[in-house]
Design a protein around this nucleic acid. Structure first.
Lengths: 137, 137
DNA sequence: TAAACGTATGAACAGATATTCATATGTAAG
DNA sequence: CTTACATATGAATATCTGTTCATACGTTTA
């Protein structure tokens, strides 16, 4: 009976490769063939790599942090000056600098009582300006 | 008396410009001069522009959406195929595609019952690959 | 027209997160 | 050593956000 079912044209012409495939997809969707699904699954980056990328963008994707990075892309600054430029509290800035530090997007060094922050590397500047460019269209 | 106070070296040598400035900063920090603060405030992008940039990165900064964009950067795909490749439900993918649509990062077109999604423009691919490059180091 | 299928969406819930407040830490000056 | 100042941080809170579930919508086919 299972045989009969299979013989009774439980197949469809794949729109992607032109071949015929049995309807064995879990989702029920038959618009693409299983081979192509498998191929895509194969060429996807590994979980860790793709997580790191989304993590990078997540850190950039906050208004306060974006402002901080813009300011630091102009010049090295201490915490309270960043706070003044952005019109925010020292505590809020400090918390966000911690996030940026952990993501290795900024560097810091002590200068007496103050701590001076700066952009970690030119890569960060490049990604930032890519973002501006895209938004400006 | 206010005059006396000012005369009594209520000034400091600015480490940035070498000039002397009165201690009139609200935060109390005197590590940078007011002129430089003002200059930075001036060269900061307008609120709307910087918001749009952070918004762009915010949308990219989610694991599921990053995966979707990676998949779509390989080929145009329908919703249920994306769901299968990522091993997630159709609903979850559809909700995220809505976010990507609103951010104009993906395009879509009906193909019979199915809806095919694709990357909106090459700019998106570029930003994505910049992210990968940065993470790979 | 009814059934099947692919997709979209509203409500609900759990988990993440940004700011505030209070306070601790580290450094320099008196 | 005490005081002042710049920064860091833990706790609390309000807000945001991603997934699930149920269901509606739109298209095709019988």
């Amino acid at each position: 009976m299972a045989e009969e079912k299979q013989d009774k044209s439980e197949q469809f012409v794949c729109s992607a490769c032109g071949d015929k495939h049995p309807q064995e997809r879990e989702t029920g969707c038959i618009c693409r063939c299983p081979e192509i699904i498998a191929e895509l699954e194969q060429c996807m980056p590994c979980e860790e790599e793709i997580y790191d990328v989304s993590e990078l963008f997540r850190v950039l994707g906050d208004l306060t942090r974006a402002k901080i990075l813009f300011a630091l892309s102009q010049r090295e600054m201490c915490v309270c000056d960043i706070a003044e430029v952005l019109g925010m509290t020292q505590s809020a800035i400090s918390h966000q600098l911690r996030v940026l530090k952990q993501a290795r997007l900024v560097r810091y060094r002590r200068e007496g009582k103050a701590v001076s922050y700066s952009i970690a590397d030119h890569h960060v500047k490049t990604i930032l300006s890519m973002g501006i460019e895209h938004v400006a269209e």
